[in-house]
Design a protein around this nucleic acid. Structure first.
Lengths: 249, 249
DNA sequence: AGAACTTAGTTGCATTGTGCAACTAAGTCA
DNA sequence: TGACTTAGTTGCACAATGCAACTAAGTTCT
């Protein structure tokens, strides 16, 4: 805003400002999303994202972190601002503008999610089934498959939260190969196959093992540990994310 | 937001919601930015971005387009939502959250910019000189050169608009090579050298002619016209952006 | 014990993309 | 006419990528 001839007047009729958080985590080689089943109308029984009102003296990022901790117990997770959703009718109760955020939770912290203080149920839903037929906000995503509108079944999500989730997934996909964001979904130490599963889950398609390993090692994105993961078959070398100045590759 | 135990109460103490628009255009092989010199305090005489309050029944994207037209006469330009700025003290007059947008204006429409209805001066400033020593919001940008804080001179920009501009530039750089966004800064028909200048201005470094031309033609991002641009030396083939389903490459 | 199976990890190669130097082409200007 | 400038191409060395085939190390089945 360059000047404000109506600065004081404009404080009337301002929309409410909220934040919503799309939390992603890996579960059984699939990307999962944290939703909270709504206990009250509107959209009772539908899935909603954790979130709430922005307080007067906090940034939206801080509000997102606070609401996430209040409603799920999660703290110290990767969190980035995503997009602001402002369709006038997106909330039937009134004008609510919401600044959506995306959070990434390491796989080994998946079960640390607690119900909110008011005991609402938080649950993990796997991605390909949770969001079908929804397009992200803004410009269409890199993987520009025109998706159909929802079918006759009841929609799963409350408000426009399906669009928010689609937007978060598009952002995650877009950043996947130009940043080290994928490591935020992995435990401190992980095998290269586990890392490959993360990439495959986010991209939604299988990727070549050799190319993947070559890339991670040649770009020095990972460093070896002396430890191995032992399981049903041949033990696998454990790696950790290499310390870097920036998430950008 | 999953539930709203305090929905009605929260309508009090809500921040004001505004939009700001970072308009980029090419001028003499350099990337330029549209600023409006403020005529009133606070920040009188400093550069500000076009923008203003979001009206009750419009989206923020619509508000950005409306304010841009009201203040500069520009319409039908590429416009995308960028990032939301919410530091509680970013406006000394009170709590104002601003949703920043980025607009791209074709070079041949640069002189169609008109002063706003209240006759404030709009002017173009070239990028490398306008923003020095500022870091974008959110995560650091792809070109992660840690910039210094401003020096002793008076800052040029009002509010946090320097950060908004830095964020817009980072976004533009990030999308440059994975989208066809650069064409939005070019006239309908352009030479490949003109296109190269756009890429160089945005990246801030020279790029190889052969590689650049090979990429544009092999990916079929441009198509030949029968016309030539005639100037001081050898005439250059005119091209246009090839019609595509998506801006993503 | 040993064969079959599964997952981990490597080697080799053909294909494609990138960076750079050197060249040709077509105009202007002195 | 020749120097200069910008447009545009050719050729090549080198790096990145995709794919097939291989070896390695464990478990399980008989």
């Amino acid at each position: 805003m360059s000047t404000h001839p109506s600065f004081d007047r404009a404080r009337f009729e301002q929309p409410s400002l909220t934040v919503d958080v799309v939390v992603f985590a890996m579960r059984e080689s699939a990307l999962n999303l944290l939703v909270i089943e709504r206990g009250i109308p509107p959209f009772e029984g539908r899935w909603a994202l954790p979130g709430g009102f922005v307080l007067p003296s906090e940034t939206v990022e801080r509000a997102a972190a606070r609401e996430l901790e209040e409603e799920t117990g999660l703290r110290d997770v990767y969190l980035e601002q995503l997009y602001t959703f402002s369709m006038p009718d997106r909330d039937p109760r009134g004008r609510v503008v919401s600044v959506a955020h995306m959070a990434l939770l390491p796989a080994d912290r998946l079960d640390t999610v607690q119900g909110g203080s008011d005991a609402r149920r938080a649950e993990w839903v796997s991605i390909p089934e949770a969001i079908e037929k929804v397009e992200p906000a803004g410009l269409p995503p890199p993987g520009a498959k025109p998706r159909k509108k929802r079918d006759a079944r009841e929609p799963h999500f409350a408000f426009d939260h399906d669009v928010i989730v689609a937007t978060a997934l598009a952002r995650l996909r877009g950043k996947l190969e130009s940043t080290t964001l994928a490591f935020e979904l992995l435990p401190e130490e992980f095998t290269l196959t586990e890392a490959q599963r993360v990439y495959e889950a986010i991209l939604g398609r299988p990727i070549d093992k050799v190319t993947f390993r070559r890339r991670l090692t040649q770009l020095e994105l990972v460093e070896e540990t002396p430890r191995m993961r032992r399981g049903a078959h041949r033990p696998a070398r454990l790696y950790r994310a290499a310390p870097r100045d920036s998430v950008w590759i």
